[in-house]
Each structure stands twice: as C-alpha cells, then as structure tokens.
C-alpha cells in the first residue's frame, strides 16, 4: 500500500511540474518575435552536406555584419534537402522580420561550400512556413520544390 501511495504522490508532483512548465513555455503571440521564412535554392557543383552549407552561411553573415549583426538576424535553418539529381537543393531559413535584405546579401556572398562552387538564391519570403512552401503549381513544377511532403 505504502509503495503505491508513494508512487501516486510522485506522479502528482510530476504532473504539477509539467503543468507549470507548460505555462512557463507558453509565450503570448503579442510577445513573440516577428520572423520571416525564406525558401531558398542552392545550385552547386556537387551534392553538399546541410552542416557545411549552414557553416558557410554563418561565416558569410559574420564576415558581413559581425557578431552583433549576426545576433540580430537570428538565423535558423529549418529544413534543407538535396534534390534527386544531387547538384542542387532547397531549404527554409528563419530570420528576424526586418533583416531579410541582410540575409539575402549574406546568402549572395556564399560562393563555395567545401571547395565546390555554389550559387544561392531566394525563391520566396513569407511570415509562415506554410506560406513559404505553398507555391502555385506552375512555380512548383518549374523549380521542382517539393517541401510539403517532407514537412
């Protein structure tokens, strides 16, 4: 009996902590940071690793805007995958809503990943991931952007 009671008490405590934790994590929408999602396309000589690409993008941002500027940009790589043919890929980046032009300039300055020449360009900018990946069918066919299935 006693053992069961102890376990029950522990569970109650855990549930309480869990609820409190949820309250702490919940951020009201008005206080959330405004962000933009950028759908981008990479064209390179070879297939490249997600980590190497992100490292190059960060290097480019540090080189252009420094540590302070990089912190203001708040860049995150949400998703990246190589296309089937291998030499190009598409991905989504997240950044602060007023730093889109800075991110664009930094992406344009990336000229090689792991010694392979690359060119990056932004296809679409949106306030939501859904908006960034939802393209008209014509555009989807042209750029072969198929992110909806992956997300």
């Amino acid at each position: 009996m006693k053992v069961k009671q102890k376990v029950g008490a522990k569970l109650v405590v855990l549930v309480c902590i869990g609820m409190y934790w949820d309250l702490m994590l919940y951020m009201p929408p008005s206080l959330r940071e405004r962000r933009r999602y950028l759908l981008f396309e990479v064209m390179g000589e070879r297939e490249m690793d997600k980590r190497d690409l992100l490292k190059e993008i960060w290097d480019s941002i540090y080189s252009l805007y420094g540590d302070v500027g990089a912190s203001e940009i708040k860049l995150r790589l949400i998703e990246y995958h190589n296309r089937e043919e291998g030499k190009s890929g598409v991905g989504i980046l997240k950044c602060a809503h007023d730093k889109v032009e800075e991110v664009r300039a930094s992406l344009a300055c990336v000229h090689s990943v792991n010694g392979a020449r690359v060119g990056i360009r932004v296809i679409k900018i949106s306030g939501t991931i859904k908006g960034a990946t939802r393209l008209p069918r014509k555009v989807t066919a042209q750029y072969s952007v198929d992110l909806n299935s992956k997300l």
Binding site: M43, G44, E45, L64, E101, E102, R104, A105, L107, A108, C109, H111, R117, V118, G119, I120, R121, V122
Partner: peptide, 18 residues
C-alpha cells in the same frame, strides 16, 4: 565567369544595399 557566379536580381539589389 561561371554559372555559379550569377546571382538573381533581388540578391544583386541586396548586395548593392551594402
């Protein structure tokens, strides 16, 4: 000097802002 050196027009505009 190669296809990888070309940049899309909007990226050029962002670079010019520098």
């Amino acid at each position: 000097h190669s296809i990888y050196d070309l940049r899309a027009p909007h990226e050029m505009i962002a670079l010019a802002a520098l």
